[in-house]
Lab assay of single mutants.
Amino acid sequence: TLFEALYDYEARTEDDLSFHKGEKFQILNSSEGDWWEVRSLTTGETGYIPSPYLAPV
C-alpha cells in the first residue's frame, strides 16, 4: 500500500525524512508506533516520518 503526505514536514533529527504535501511513500516498517520508516517515491530517500501526516493512496 502506498501512502501520500497530507502536510509538509521538516526533519528534526538525522533519522527523520523531510517531505512535501502530496509526496508518495512506500512503507518499510510501521511497527515502531507513530513513526514509520518509509522510502520516498519522489527522492528515493529513506527515513522516519510521523504516520499522522500520511493517508493511504
Rank of each mutant, 00 (worst) to 15 (best):
Y53W: 11
E4Y: 14
S31P: 09
T46L: 07
F19C: 09
Y9M: 04
E37H: 13
F19V: 08
T1I: 14
P50E: 07
V57R: 00
T43A: 01
P56N: 06
E10H: 10
S31V: 10
K21N: 03
G33R: 11
T42F: 09
S30F: 14
F19Q: 00
G33C: 08
S51V: 11
L6G: 03
S31I: 11
Y48E: 01
S30N: 12
S18N: 07
E10C: 11
Y7S: 09
S51L: 06
Y9C: 05
G44L: 08
A55K: 14
A5S: 06
E14S: 12
E4Q: 09
T46Q: 10
N29L: 05
Q26W: 13
E4G: 02
L6M: 10
W36L: 06
R39T: 10
L28D: 01
I27S: 02
T43F: 02
E32S: 14
K24D: 01
F19M: 09
V38H: 00
L6R: 06
T13D: 12
L41H: 05
R12I: 13
G22R: 01
L28W: 02
V38D: 00
T42D: 11
A55E: 08
G33N: 11
F25D: 00
G44I: 01
A11V: 02
S51M: 09
R39P: 01
P50Y: 15
Q26D: 06
Y48V: 09
A55S: 12
Y7E: 10
T13Y: 15
F3Q: 03
G47P: 00
I27F: 10
E23P: 00
Y7C: 12
T43H: 03
D15F: 15
G44F: 07
D8F: 03
S51W: 15
N29T: 08
S30C: 10
A5R: 00
F25P: 00
E32V: 11
P52T: 15
S40V: 07
Y53K: 03
I49N: 00
E4N: 03
E45T: 10
I49L: 06
E14Y: 09
K21S: 06
Y9G: 04
R12P: 14
P52K: 15
E4S: 06
N29F: 06
R12E: 13
E14W: 08
Y7G: 07
L54E: 03
G33Q: 12
R12T: 13
A55N: 08
L28F: 03
W36M: 05
L41Q: 08
L6T: 06
Q26H: 11
E37T: 06
W36T: 04
W35Q: 07
R39H: 07
G44E: 04
S40F: 04
H20W: 08
E32M: 15
H20M: 12
K21C: 06
E4K: 05
P56Q: 09
L54Q: 03
W36R: 01
D8P: 05
E32N: 15
E23R: 00
G47C: 03
V57P: 05
T42A: 13
A11P: 05
D15M: 14
L6K: 08
S31D: 13
L17F: 15
R12N: 12
I27C: 03
W36A: 01
Q26C: 10
L28A: 01
V57N: 05
G47T: 03
V38R: 00
D8C: 08
E23Q: 07
W36D: 01
T13R: 15
E10W: 08
L17Q: 03
T13W: 14
S51Y: 12
E37L: 15
